[in-house]
Write a protein that binds this DNA or RNA. Structure first.
Lengths: 139, 139
DNA sequence: TTCTACATTATAATAGTTCTAAACTGTTGA
DNA sequence: TCAACAGTTTAGAACTATTATAATGTAGAA
């Protein structure tokens, strides 16, 4: 939970100009107690609910990508018609409920560390992501 | 490595009419010694190389989805501008080389079983997929 | 204040995928 | 065998998420 001046500092310190659009998006994404998942489309809806100053779609895309590049957001690898982002940038994994089309965090403590006993020469591991797909248990 | 009459049987037994388009796509996907990854776009190219009878793009999409639904193909969860499919439907995971935009199988023996110590009530686990993103090691 | 580089914006463009509806074809059963 | 039907293919249009464009606006430095 940060106030605007802290967002301004955060943006400035990472080389992003603290425009009012970016500050507004910071408020929406980072003011919550809880981290959450969203699509661009959902973010646009939240923005239009919380302000009268419309932010253009292009700016939302630009900002989300900028925040992702700075490490303030993570993109969640999932086959979907749209990209999912996560405000929780700490190491953790996800359930994907295929019935509800819903993403759920898996607490990192609930996943044993994934051991990959092979490497690709000349490449270093950037991330290890586990996606657990679930569906309604009708048994 | 199956011959056409075996593909016909395979298709029929899973409730898919063995049309010449589907048989041709079976040949391309399942005649290889090795399993492989592909995008729709790449599959279309392979088809046009191996036959003079053009298969329409819609049919390629339809067929790939039908095969996926029947469990003959797996879709690989990855953020990309296009969907990746895998002819290897056995349990295994992937490296994704972000520099080369290239998918590489991880032999299942090289990954310790992923233990998820939590469940979602009323849901059953359908799959557990690990994606290891790698990049050039410039260190 | 003025300048400049960076941001925002509306809109067009792009690309992957899905939809449509007409033509075609494998299969069934008389 | 062959008619009839349901499933399949097809070209092209439509759709949707995302990116590019280029003009306008603005934050920050001098």
């Amino acid at each position: 939970m940060l106030n605007n001046s802290q967002y301004i500092e955060k943006l400035r310190s990472s080389g992003l100009r603290p425009t009012k659009q970016r500050i507004k998006i910071c408020e929406i994404l980072f003011n919550s107690e809880k981290t959450f998942h969203f699509t661009i489309n959902e973010l646009v809806k939240r923005i239009s609910k919380s302000t009268n100053d419309k932010i253009s779609l292009a700016t939302v895309y630009n900002t989300v990508h900028a925040f992702k590049n700075k490490g303030y957001l993570k993109e969640i690898p999932i086959n979907s018609d749209q990209s999912y982002f996560d405000t929780n940038t700490s190491h953790h994994h996800h359930f994907y409920d295929e019935t509800q089309k819903d993403l759920i965090d898996i607490d990192d403590a609930d996943v044993e560390p994934v051991k990959i006993n092979t490497r690709i020469p000349g490449k270093k591991i950037k991330s290890v992501e586990v996606l657990v797909k679930v569906e309604d248990d009708k048994s």
